[in-house]
Design a protein around this nucleic acid. Structure first.
Length: 816
RNA sequence: GCCUAGGUGGCGGAAUUGGUAUACGCGCACGACUUAAAAUCGUGUCUCUCACGGGAUGCGGGUUCGACUCCCGCCCUAGGCACCA
């Protein structure tokens, strides 16, 4: 008996597969197409991590399964190669990001091949490659021409010491992660994509796609559509004299207008400075404004503590009841959501209530959560106030209006419109989604193909000059402007083409732009004259997309936006990029902790493959937990899968003329379950089904033919060992020649069922019945059992419930 | 704080979607083989009880003949929160 030597087998077949180019497909043949897409990795210096390993194996299994089912499967891979880590590395070491990236990519490819992942690396998409980003820039141009791009400013975290914008995640307790300097919020000018134009489509079209429900829910919440009203409040100053100023608020609850007992403006609201002369505590107001400016958005909205400052000398008039109410600025109101101002109804909004309790503002309930007027008891308002003060929670439900003048007794929904009308407001829709700011003050990104005239007017770089190449003569150290500003070549190139005094745009694009369309490139990755030819576009859209749940919001939303925008322009004839989406969970260490370099608990797939083989690593990754759950990488457990493969290996030496009947039945059952299981990406149970099968075989006997069928269904998980055995049995190429086996429905079912017999819901006996036994006969058999007779204690059954082939419940009495 | 998901043996997990809770794997214990060990094979392994039986799916309630599964209220963990990818 020959030992199972995974290293020899895997190396040998990987070499043969590469030489025979088994990953090549005819891309012009889209008749029976299936587009299987992976989220492409950022090629970091740490190499492929275990999360990639799981996700890519999952897709590789599905790819092999579909291929065996006769589909022409596109299964590409590429690299999201622009990004900050390479740039930071360059700042530290001076090594150019292009060099780092190239090195990392070749390492990634080596690792992917080592895992037996079958990609065609001749046609990749590498976002930092000018051949790729030429089309990123070209799409930017199309967006620009179609009025989907504009210039504006946005607040960002600014580190004055590093002289650069930094991400929220690099801000620790308000300080720069790198140098500890206090972070300020600075207004940065830049380019924006009009994603909000598509807000409604981005919500509604989720109905068209097969995605996890929670992912859809998250996207809807992120877009945050809310129906409400805009209502204007007049302002008074100097002992209640009306001023010319008004505050417009956005509210989703205009029905509670009579309960608005104060107003809040975002500290940055333009009206605040306009009212400077009327505000008698200006110093305090200004100081608060500066503090709020330097908080990140999350610091402002998190936590129960609400802060704010009353604008002394100013009041507003509640347009519903003409009452004079105080006006505050508070940082829990954000300037870029709604109108940047709110009417506050502490009785019916938790945040308003918290603020009101701190500032001792009147709480005025105006909604009774009841269905009929009779249920509104006297003193209800007082009760509600008391409960709000004690619990800290407002009542936010709907119901009938009270304490609201002529609207008393009206239901909330109707009152929304009526009250809005009454005060001259307007019903409107508001979104949480903001336009996409794509400018980054970074080097290692796609240059924005814009140049400025000496007068400062922005113009597109004409298509003939694309790719608008990222200059290489730069110093990576940030100096307050984008690194591209330091390039002599870039400036000279611009002046040479456009004339003296012209300057290029120095910012690069958000790397999310690159990854928002890469899947459109794969079908025709080598095309120099189009981003994708009409023939190759038939591969699109993606049939199945697998990737991490951490991309639930941004990447997936941006890619959907790109698809919709390109559809609108006429570049694509579909408007959803990913028909089916599934996530893979995170891979944690054996203690359930996230793997990170700083913790020193990173597991390297190379080492795992060396010790256990790619087949074991692949199969174990998928066996350890459901795909979408977290996987704890426990090295001790992988031996179970290794032993399973060894059993498969040695079974080759024990083949018999004929399979025993239980093996035949188990085989058909296993094929049936695997066919369904792989299709649903329920890989963990699919692997356990195969283990059960082998356990049956060990106790029985299997023929060569049935053994080969089993190798076929195992091959997507463990392609190397199955191919080797396939070869040893005298066959050619499993992956290229074999099709997915069919199962015999009648053989896949048990003929005898063990069913549980319950008395009053408790299992008291198990009986065996044949397939197709009538309910009556099942009852008879059960009632004839001595054990059951004993438990019935001679009482008459009240009710008998039979669930086919599963359970029979005899109800004698309820337990009273 | 807000949005979303999840809590089942010593551990990873299974449960035909409301029908015999703990499949499969790891670990552990005992046995076989061995001078011995490793490997392999076999048996056992939720818990309390001598037993008859009873109790367990994060905690507390509810619906049902029957609840890991559905409903209500808590607690804990994870992901995301717009310049990391």
């Amino acid at each position: 008996m020959e030992k199972y030597n995974h290293n020899d087998i895997e190396g040998k077949w990987q070499k043969i597969w590469e030489e025979n180019k088994v990953s090549k497909i005819d891309k012009d043949d889209t008749k029976n197409k299936f587009y299987m897409l992976d989220m492409f990795p950022y090629p970091s210096g740490d190499g492929l991590h275990m999360g990639h390993t799981e996700s890519y194996t999952a897709s590789d299994v599905y790819y092999r399964f579909k291929k065996m089912q006769g589909f022409n499967v596109l299964h590409p891979q590429g690299f999201d190669a622009f990004g900050l880590p390479a740039e930071n590395f360059a700042i530290k070491t001076g090594v150019h990001p292009a060099q780092t990236t190239e090195k990392n990519i070749s390492n990634y490819i080596k690792q992917m091949k080592m895992l037996g992942l079958n990609y065609d690396f001749d046609e990749q998409a590498v976002t930092s490659d000018p051949k790729y980003y030429k089309w990123t820039q070209w799409i930017f141009q199309q967006f620009y021409k179609n009025d989907l791009v504009y210039q504006s400013t946005q607040k960002a975290n600014w580190c004055s010491s590093c002289q650069t914008v930094i991400a929220n995640e690099q801000v620790l307790n308000g300080e720069c992660e790198r140098c500890g300097t206090q972070i300020e919020q600075k207004k940065i000018p830049g380019w924006f994509f009009k994603i909000t134009d598509f807000a409604d489509d981005l919500i509604n079209d989720l109905d068209k796609v097969d995605w996890p429900e929670h992912t859809k829910k998250n996207q809807r919440n992120w877009i945050g559509k809310s129906e409400g009203a805009k209502i204007k409040f007049k302002l008074t100053a100097h002992r209640s004299q009306l001023t010319a100023n008004e505050i417009e608020v956005f509210t989703t609850r205009p029905d509670t207008l009579f309960g608005a007992t104060y107003m809040v403006l975002a500290p940055e609201h333009s009206l605040v400075s306009e009212l400077k002369d009327q505000i008698t505590n200006w110093d305090e107001v200004e100081e608060y404004g500066i503090k709020a400016q330097n908080k990140t958005e999350m610091e402002r909205i998190e936590g129960k503590e609400k802060t704010g400052v009353k604008l002394e000398g100013i009041s507003a008039i509640n347009p519903a009841n003409s009452e004079e109410i105080p006006v505050f600025i508070a940082d829990y109101v954000l300037v870029n959501y709604g109108t940047g101002a709110i009417m506050a109804v502490p009785a019916h909004d938790d945040r308003d209530l918290q603020f009101a309790l701190q500032k001792d503002i009147e709480i005025k309930p105006v909604i009774a959560e009841v269905k009929s007027v009779d249920e509104i008891i006297p003193g209800l308002a007082e009760l509600k106030i008391k409960s709000a003060r004690e619990s800290g929670f407002a009542t936010i439900g709907f119901g009938l209006l009270m304490e609201s003048g002529q609207f008393n007794g009206m239901n909330s929904e109707e009152a929304k419109k009526k009250i809005t009308e009454f005060v001259g407001g307007e019903m409107t829709t508001n979104y949480r989604l903001r336009d996409w700011s794509i400018s980054r003050q970074r080097y290692w990104g796609c240059p924005i193909p814009i140049v400025y005239s000496p007068e400062g007017k922005a113009t597109l770089v004409p298509e003939e000059h694309l790719p608008w190449i990222l200059p290489i003569d730069v110093d990576f150290k940030p100096k307050g402007v984008s690194p591209l500003g330091a390039s002599k070549e870039f400036k000279e190139r611009t002046e040479k083409i456009f004339g003296k005094g012209w300057t290029p745009e120095y910012d690069t694009m958000d790397t999310f732009v690159d990854s928002s369309w890469y899947f459109l490139r794969y079908p025709d990755a080598l095309n120099d004259s189009e981003f994708c030819s009409e023939i190759r576009k038939k591969w699109l859209p993606v049939d199945l997309y697998i990737g991490g749940a951490e991309h639930t919001y941004m990447h997936l939303l941006f890619a959907r936006f790109f698809t919709k925008a390109m559809n609108k322009i006429g570049l694509l004839d579909f408007d959803e990029p990913f028909l089916k989406l599934r996530h893979q969970g995170m891979v944690l260490d054996a203690q359930g902790k996230k793997m990170s370099k700083s913790k020193g608990n990173v597991v390297n797939p190379d080492d795992m493959v060396k010790s256990f083989g790619a087949d074991s690593v692949r199969t174990y990754m998928l066996f350890a937990a459901p795909l979408e759950d977290e996987v704890m990488w426990n090295e001790d457990n992988i031996v179970g899968v290794y032993r399973f493969l060894e059993k498969v290996w040695f079974t080759k030496d024990e083949l018999k003329e004929k399979s025993s009947e239980d093996v035949v039945r188990e085989l058909h059952k296993t094929i049936k379950r695997m066919t369904k299981g792989i299709d649903e990406l329920a890989y963990n149970t699919a692997v356990s089904d195969m283990m059960k099968f082998i356990n049956t075989v060990k106790k029985s006997s299997i023929s060569k033919e049935d053994y080969q069928t089993f190798l076929t269904i195992l091959s997507p998980f463990a392609p190397h060992i199955t191919q080797e055995l396939w070869h040893q049995l005298g066959n050619e190429s499993l992956i290229q020649d074999e099709s997915w086996p069919k199962f015999d429905e009648s053989l896949s079912k048990d003929s005898i069922h063990k069913i549980a017999v319950q008395v009053n819901g408790k299992v008291r006996e198990t009986i065996e019945i044949e397939e197709g036994t009538e309910e009556e006969d099942v009852s008879k058999k059960a009632l004839a059992s001595e054990l059951i007779k004993k438990w019935l204690e001679g009482k008459e059954p009240k009710k008998i419930i039979y669930v086919k082939n599963r359970i029979l419940n005899i109800v004698v009495e309820s337990n009273e």
